[in-house]
Nucleic acid binder design. Structure first.
Lengths: 139, 139
DNA sequence: TGGAGTGTATTATATCACTTAATACACTTG
DNA sequence: CAAGTGTATTAAGTGATATAATACACTCCA
């Protein structure tokens, strides 16, 4: 499965995307889902780099994007911490979901799908997924 | 708007994505939506390159991907033609939509959204879009 | 106070995808 | 035979990505 544990987090890295982007996305998900508590310290750049067998610069790149997102706060000499603002995390989650939804709909419409057809596709897939596994297809 | 006409097609190119990918996607859309008739000849590599102010190699790259998709057939010395198989086009459209849907759902679930929440988001956005413009938000 | 651990910045090197350019070839049509 | 097709090749340049090796300023704690 090529999974790597670091602290309470689990990462899956491959070569299909930039490494820093994969780290970034998986950190965003962990924060959005509350898998890391608000205000909690995340692994240091060097610790993360060592655990993921990746260059510290690459981890640093991802961490700086997280701060640009407003999801983390960095304290010089101390480390990087998840923001304490629950509102900020919720807002980010909403905005990202909104972007994903808009992109998805735009692409479906570029193939000639109508709103009703898109809704029907989603509903069909939901029923397919919830029949097989009880976890809603998440895992 | 930075749009370029070539034959009956309209292209919009920017620098946010590889040029060959943008050409590829917009050709796929045109074929899937039936904006180009089955069996019809598409502009030659050189003509398209000149019209889009792009290198012939870049257009050729996109055209070869189209053939890999099974959406076009190339006849040496004659040109590139849309497949005559309506079934092939429909199948491609379905498969691409299926992929888009699966990716979208996976990303939403990675943010902690449930199936019901995803369905509600889509339905809300549909109502927002159909209130404003009558074209369903496509243009 | 000093050492260890923080994030950050810098410079250098290497690789890869993408793009352009200039040719060349085999094929088909008129 | 000439013009137009797709295709292949070689070369060059650019930018993003990643690694490596240092260095610096900061904070904490023994």
């Amino acid at each position: 499965m090529d999974e790597r544990q670091v602290g309470s987090l689990t990462f899956r890295l491959d070569l299909s995307q930039p490494l820093y982007e994969q780290i970034l996305k998986q950190m965003r998900s962990a924060i959005a889902k509350g898998e890391i508590a608000l205000g909690e310290k995340i692994p240091s750049v060097r610790e993360m780099a060592h655990a993921l067998k990746v260059n510290p610069n690459t981890v640093s790149h991802a961490y700086q994007e997280l701060e640009r997102d407003g999801l983390t706060e960095t304290r010089r000499g101390q480390g990087t911490f998840i923001t304490t603002s629950r509102e900020r995390v919720q807002q980010f989650r909403r905005e990202l979901a909104e972007r994903l939804l808009a992109d998805f709909v735009a692409q479906m419409q570029s193939l000639g799908y109508t709103w009703d057809e898109i809704e029907r596709c989603l509903h069909t897939k939901k029923k397919e997924a919830t029949v097989h596994g009880r976890n809603g297809g998440a895992l």
